[in-house]
Design a binder for these strands. Structure first.
Length: 416
RNA sequence: GUGAACGUAGCUCAGUGGUAGAGCUCCGGCUUGUGGUGCCGGCGGUCGCGGGUUCGAAUCCCGUCGUUCACCCCA
């Protein structure tokens, strides 16, 4: 920074009228969440670092190199929330929410912070809309969670939508798979990149997602996780897919789908938008049946998703709707002395529920009419000395241009 | 974090070594009380920032910050 300060790297301001598009998106999401009977939850912007280390997992890029961590004046190790699920799980444990009627169904809108290299659609601070369902291991919940997100995207009319889904299995499935996968990788270590070799024991599943051709050829011959699913995990996965079919939600199963948090079990899924380039994932999530216990709570299954507000905004460029400004009426006062005299009149219109804009700069009538038009006012109320002395105002319909004289004391009724 | 491209008015961009430009936006006038089209005028720039080369730098060189693209990762 030198001279004029600017927003920090990877952050950005959202200005009107862009904020109207954003609010339409958020309003729509809230409406959908309420339709499925979710309740809002708010958690702190920062947590004890331990929440994310234990929750998200030490093998993840998020915990290893992307967290905004700091020590406060009391020597506490804190971290700006890099994702939403761990915080919600922590709150669930802290407040004994397992004693509530289960499952608990929650939604949130919150900023997330990750120190990554910024790119289009990837920011160091971004907002996520998300839901979490805690306390039921039924595949019905998996189906509902995916349906909520699909419903939201449909209402927003997200173009070129894709859904990939997979099952990570339960811990037993993963352990059995690991025993077969690691020897395969070690036998073929010569064909792996150095980076890939480093992950063999750390998080070998990640390699299924590699874009390196040589690594891919090794993974193509590797034992797929799907072959090692336990009977329970397999049945669960089948039930979820059946439910999606029943709801006519299109999906593609993809056993190479690997997500960035260690807590995922069984169902994982990711929605993509085809016109977003490299950052095509607009929302994703999965089941995390061990997370609550990991954070010191009773064994409690859970599942949720997060979807990125900024990426949705990009995906909806050109097709998204704005929230209407709601401005109904522009009051144009021609005589300077009347500007103060008529403040109660304007106040009265607003009390009557009419959105009113008026000139705050001392513009001339022509400029005020232009202002009224550009702000989208439906009607203009013009009051000059002549009108005021007669106790009337001129009301102009901005669409048709029709004008009529209205007594000042009837203005609210006529405009309403 | 690595590699590459780009950074000129609020916005979109032109200008590639010789006095900083256009369109749009905004403000005002033509119309002394009437918008969305027209005409005229005006406001607005440390050419991202710092250093260097040069008689002279928006232009060439170095550094730095930011954006974008790819890798990586993810929303």
């Amino acid at each position: 920074m030198s001279g004029r300060p600017s927003a920090p790297r990877g952050t950005h301001d959202v200005l009107p009228p862009e904020t109207r598009r954003r609010e339409h998106l958020i309003d729509t999401a809230r409406a959908v969440f309420e339709m499925y009977a979710y309740e809002a939850i708010v958690t702190p912007t920062f947590e004890e670092t331990e929440v994310f280390v234990r929750g998200v997992g030490t093998s993840t890029d998020i915990v290893r190199k992307e967290m905004y961590s700091f020590t406060d004046q009391g020597g506490r190790e804190l971290t700006l929330r890099p994702e939403g699920t761990a915080s919600v799980a922590r709150a669930f444990v802290q407040h004994g929410m397992h004693k509530l009627q289960l499952p608990v169904k929650l939604w949130y809108l919150a900023p997330m912070f990750r120190q990554e290299a910024p790119q289009k659609g990837r920011f160091r601070e971004h907002y996520q809309l998300g839901i979490e369902v805690l306390g039921s291991d039924s595949p019905l919940v998996d189906i509902e969670v995916i349906a909520v997100l699909a419903d939201l995207y449909e209402r927003l009319r997200v173009p070129k939508l894709g859904l990939r889904i997979s099952s990570m299995g339960d811990p037993d499935s993963r352990a059995a798979h690991r025993e077969a996968l690691i020897p395969h990788l070690e036998r073929n270590a010569g064909r792996l990149t150095e980076e890939a070799r480093g992950r063999i024991t750390e998080n070998p599943l990640r390699l299924f997602d590699s874009k390196d051709q040589s690594v891919q050829s090794v993974m193509a011959e590797a034992p797929p996780l799907g072959d090692y699913l336990s009977a329970d995990a397999r049945a669960h996965y089948g039930a979820v897919l059946l439910g999606l079919d029943k709801l006519a939600i299109a999906y593609e199963t993809d056993s190479t789908l690997v997500r960035g948090m260690d807590y995922y079990t069984k169902t994982v899924f990711e929605f993509t938008c085809g016109n977003l380039g490299a950052q095509s994932a607009i929302g994703g999530g999965g089941r995390y049946d061990g997370l609550v216990e990991q954070l010191g709570g009773p064994p409690t299954p859970g599942i949720g998703f997060g979807t990125g507000v900024e990426r949705l905004m990009l995906a909806l460029e050109g097709v998204g709707e704005n929230r209407p400004s709601g401005l109904r009426c522009y009051v144009a006062i021609l005589d300077d002395d009347l500007r103060v005299e008529l403040l109660p009149l304007i106040g009265g219109l607003r009390s009557a529920g009419i959105s009113v804009e008026t000139d705050l700069r001392g513009r001339g009538l022509k400029a005020m009419m232009k202002h009224a038009a550009s702000r989208g006012a439906e009607q203009a109320v013009i009051i000059g000395r002549r009108d005021y002395d007669d106790g009337v105002a001129t009301v102009r319909d901005m669409r048709s241009g029709d004008q009529q004289q209205v007594p000042l004391d009837q203005l609210a009724e006529v405009l309403a």
